[in-house]
Design a protein around this nucleic acid. Sequence first.
DNA 1: GTCTATATATAGATAGAC
DNA 2: GTCTATCTATATATAGAC
Lengths: 208, 208
Amino acid sequence: MTAFLKRLIACHTGCASTGEKLDTKDQIVQIATELIQQRGYQGFSYQDIATRLDIKKASIHYHFPKKEDLGVAVISAYYQYIQDWIGKYDLDKMTALEKLEQYFQFFAETALHGELGCVMNGFLAESGSLPEVLREKLAWFEKWHMELVTMKVKEGLEKGEFKKRGTPEEQALFIIAAAMGALNMAQDKQTPGVYDIVVRQIIESLTC
Amino acid sequence: MTAFLKRLIACHTGCASTGEKLDTKDQIVQIATELIQQRGYQGFSYQDIATRLDIKKASIHYHFPKKEDLGVAVISAYYQYIQDWIGKYDLDKMTALEKLEQYFQFFAETALHGELGCVMNGFLAESGSLPEVLREKLAWFEKWHMELVTMKVKEGLEKGEFKKRGTPEEQALFIIAAAMGALNMAQDKQTPGVYDIVVRQIIESLTC
DNA sequence: GTCTATATATAGATAGAC
DNA sequence: GTCTATCTATATATAGAC
């Protein structure tokens, strides 16, 4: 497990006892991530973070002069987090389906299995009022995200594990949309286990 | 076409020429809906609406004393809008698939086929900071939404139009998640036609 | 029903001391 | 790197005149 992952999980589970000391800058990114998942980008303030860390707002401006700098850092960290997660596995020994299941799993863990929303949704839902630099970073992430899933779909099709429906890109789009939508729905706590249910439906529709 | 639908579309297409005069209260709800789709609930202010209508903030407070009152009204209007839409059709003569396609179509129209995001996502993505009354209204809407789609799935299963995968509720959850996710993804303008692509994938996975 | 005026709180951000 | 102090803008909301 990578350092950032440890930190993210440590924070999500109560900010305690990983034995690893975090510097303030990382802690800020970590807390901002969580707040964006709960409230969206505009829904958190430097004061919220300052209160949690028991420091002052001005200290946060030292690390991230503008709020959009922090927003960009959150997306970068999230990207790195996923890359690290993937790096943990021996991809050569896995089937395409196992790789896709792994994808669903880390997607779920970043949201604590529905306790929090999808990080990207916290930005996307407000994209009409996001600063340009954030919209660009968001587009950059989503492009990479699409490529990641498209690769997995292509592999599954080549190996005959997945059923072909439209182009691989279209199937990837469908997978991402369903997974993101499920994480978002999980937030209103109406249907426990939405995410797992939706993931099972996606896999079934891909394989049989 | 119902009055509200006319109004909503009129607003979305430039607030002009339906021949129908709207009262201020309806116009406020209309504009708030659009702003929530673009920026989320916290992303718009009474000032934004006042500027568009060329009135003062205080006038909006007359109609909706608190912002959460306006938020609740937006959800109610959206519910009514969908009900009215459904009422336009002769449901007896339609197949289950046609009914589902109709559902996807009005879902798309409320978001101008991807020009705007999903109304509910504008709330859901920020649910961690929503006033209690709004969270309740949101849950009420989503419960109804689920029942609506579940009914359509059940009908399709009974008629043999849809393939069974898990329970009808699980299939409905999957359909809603994918559709909502697609509308949200459409906002970053990266992949033109995401919504239509995803809808086609959903239908294919249901029927073959 | 809309206005002016105002209250109060909080936002993002900067300057400069330690 | 964190602090105090402060600036400026804007948010939600209310009171009372027209």
